[in-house]
Every structure is written in structure tokens, then in C-alpha cells.
Design a protein around this nucleic acid. Structure first.
Length: 254
DNA sequence: ATGGCGGTGTAACACCGA
């Protein structure tokens, strides 16, 4: 069983990349963020032809999330029931006995800004909802674009980023609050190469220079962490023409 | 310090992402 997450930065533009990646990596479940696609325009047929069912909630221009699956999808929840939100940032479903929660956590723009307050409030509500989901579903995975680099080793230049958005102490504390629900960062269950990131700016040749952040994560409940045998970041799609600025993250379960 | 790049909506640039 393989679970993956990928911020595609427009599914319309990136559909060929997604289909190619699924051909090369026939994972069981792929969570997508930033689809930027309204539900009427979601490419259901193309994904079905590739062997994937999909559930999704999207909007124009911004946000939008989806879960693609090779297996039947049940008990779909769109958005956090504990948080009133115009944005389409959460979708959850049960697949093969696993509660899969796909999240696109707000960017936050700048520490102290209005959007930062929104991000922090959003994270608090996510914590409270995931807590109740964990109580209900022992096998739970929380996957997505967190827009938080949990530790300095997840940052290419910690000194330059110190205190900035994605690495600030309040954001990292919110990430630790999620871990305190007894969730494990799948990537850190294993020895990993140094300086491995999941996002690189389009500018300044950041990818070529590996100026990245690890902000896309897969958190696993104890029952799933015990089944997890690998977690990798696939940099290959970032090297292709017209890539997303994020790389997929994949967790393998027994 | 600022903007760099890229997607979107909309028809020249503004907004947003991270």
C-alpha cells in the first residue's frame, strides 16, 4: 500500500505530469493540493482511464484538494466541520480501512499578517478535528502541503529563513501539536539523505541550487507508522518541463 | 532592500503562492 501527496499548482496545467507520474508510480492513493479547478471541470474521465477514482472539492484560481484512489472511496468529508472557511483546503475519505485526510494548509504570507492569523486559527481547528478523527479511526494518515518546515534541517538556509513564514516558532509549535496527537512524520521514521526538500521556488534557479524547504508531509497514526516501511520525496517531476514547484512525497505501508 | 517565476482571471497587469 502506497500513499502519496503532491501540490500540483493547477491540475489543469499539470494533468499530463500527474498521469505520467501515476504510470511510473502506481500508488494506491494520491492526495492533490492546489488543483485550482472547480468541480465541474475536474478531469474525472482522464483519471478513471488511468485506473483512479477521485473525490475533490475545488474553487476557481486558488486552493482545491482531491484524493485519487485505486480502491473504493467511502465516508467522504469536505472541509473541516469545526472551521467555517470559504477556501477549499480539506478533503477526507476512508480507503482500505485507512482514514486519509488531505490538507492544503494556508501559506500565511508573512508572520504577523492577517493571513498569518488565519493560518494559525486554521491550524488550531485542524488539530481539534484531527484529534476527533484519530479517536474514531486508529489507522489514519494526514497528508498534504503543510506550509511548515518543522525543523532547521528541513530548510536550505536556516539563518536566512529564521523567524520567517514557514519556519516561525508559532507554526512549528502548531506542527508539534499535531505530532502530539501521537502522529509520526513518516519521512523521519527513516534515515534520510541530508538537504532533501519538497518545494523549491521557481525563481533564482532555486531547484538547481537546491534552495528548498521540506513543507509537504505525511503524518501517520501509531497503527500506520508501525506498517510504514519507507518514505521518499520524488524529485524527478520537479526536473521536467513546466513542473509544479512541489515534489511528491510517498509513504509505503506493509 | 527588491524582485526574480509561474498560474489565474482577464485581456494589461494585479493577486497570490512560498
Amino acid at each position: 500500500m502506497k500513499l502519496a501527496t503532491w501540490n500540483v499548482n493547477s491540475l489543469k496545467v499539470r494533468l499530463p505530469h500527474v498521469l505520467q507520474w501515476l504510470t511510473d508510480n502506481p500508488v494506491d492513493v494520491l492526495c492533490l493540493q492546489e488543483t485550482k479547478t472547480v468541480d465541474d471541470k475536474f478531469p474525472t474521465a482522464e483519471l478513471e482511464a488511468a485506473g483512479y477514482q477521485a473525490v475533490f472539492c475545488g474553487q476557481k484560481t486558488y486552493n482545491g484538494v482531491a484524493i485519487l484512489s485505486r480502491h473504493p472511496i467511502a465516508d467522504v468529508v469536505k472541509n473541516n466541520p469545526l472551521f467555517e472557511d470559504d477556501h477549499q483546503r480539506v478533503i477526507a475519505a476512508t480507503i482500505d480501512g485507512i482514514r486519509v485526510i488531505c490538507v492544503y494548509i494556508p501559506n500565511g504570507q508573512a508572520v504577523g499578517s492577517e493571513k498569518f492569523s488565519y493560518k494559525m486559527n486554521w491550524l488550531k481547528a485542524l488539530h481539534d478535528w484531527v484529534k476527533s478523527e484519530c479517536a474514531q479511526y486508529p489507522q489514519l494518515a494526514l497528508l498534504g502541503d503543510y506550509n511548515i518546515a518543522p525543523e532547521d534541517r528541513d530548510v536550505h538556509d536556516p539563518a536566512a529563513w529564521a523567524g520567517q513564514i514557514h519556519v516561525s516558532e508559532p507554526e512549528r509549535a502548531a506542527f508539534r501539536d499535531l505530532l502530539a496527537l501521537d502522529l509520526k512524520d513518516a519521512f523521519r521514521l527513516f534515515d534520510q539523505p541530508e538537504k532533501l526538500y519538497s518545494w523549491w521556488d521557481y525563481r533564482q534557479m532555486a531547484f538547481r541550487r537546491n534552495m528548498g524547504l521540506r513543507i509537504d508531509h505525511i503524518l501517520l497514526s501509531p497503527a500506520l507508522a508501525a506498517r510504514c516501511t519507507a518514505c521518499v520525496i520524488d524529485k524527478l517531476p520537479r526536473k521536467r518541463e513546466q513542473p509544479s514547484d512541489h515534489a511528491p512525497v510517498v509513504a509505503t505501508l506493509d
